[in-house]
Design a protein around this nucleic acid. Structure first.
Lengths: 106, 106
DNA sequence: CGTATAGTTGGATTGTTGTCAAACCTTCAA
DNA sequence: TTGAAGGTTTGACAACAATCCAACTATACG
């Protein structure tokens, strides 16, 4: 069970996080993770309808920017939101974005 | 004194706002506007050190995404943050981003 | 070992973005 | 009416980003 490389909390950059969240597909992933706690890549990607390699690219952007954490177990990879880390680094930001996702469609 | 075209509150899109805020130059503009309330284009651009046409491009992105409002008065254009509109549409988002800008350098 | 599963990587393509420079438009003032 | 001030627009260009497809890696299961 190994963890894929990811930035330390203090190395998470605001502009990179905002950029990571500014893509609809990635925002969708993040929203699902916020609701489900943890998902496999295929689990989270199914409802989005993009090619799996495209999704793999989005996962990398999310991981490199510090938004998600990925843990490999067997042949699957489980993603989780780095909620505690993001809350520590940028208090209120993630919640505001998640609220905005649901709130804006009301 | 005319107002340049800008999206209505309900037409402001989360992904566009996040994208607008994900560029360092634009984030800098927004931070200055949060502190100064209102500034001319040249006033806000001076400290950034980019070409004025580049800044003009960034102003447009900020305006089109609904982050700032621009009012023309004489030959100057005054920009303001659409704070109330953003707070209404995405509660807490702008404040979290502004906090993050200062907080992350502490 | 052979095969299926779960993802990643590389290449190709198409489109977007950030930047500058030069030309332009508008307004104000002499 | 000429000129200057304050921005915008257009064109060019390089860098980046999103997407797909095909080939690949690694793990698990018969």
């Amino acid at each position: 069970m190994r963890l894929l490389p990811q930035p330390a909390v203090d190395d998470i950059q605001l502009t990179e996080v905002l950029h990571a969240l500014s893509d609809p597909a990635r925002l969708d992933v993040v929203t699902q993770l916020a609701a489900e706690f943890e998902l496999t890549c295929s689990g989270v990607g199914e409802s989005i309808g993009l090619h799996k390699s495209t999704m793999s690219h989005h996962y990398r952007v999310l991981r490199d920017s510090g938004v998600v954490s990925t843990r490999q177990e067997g042949r699957q990879k489980f993603m989780t939101l780095r909620k505690a880390d993001l809350d520590q680094r940028f208090p209120g930001l993630l919640d505001a974005v998640l609220d905005a996702v649901v709130g804006a469609t009301r």
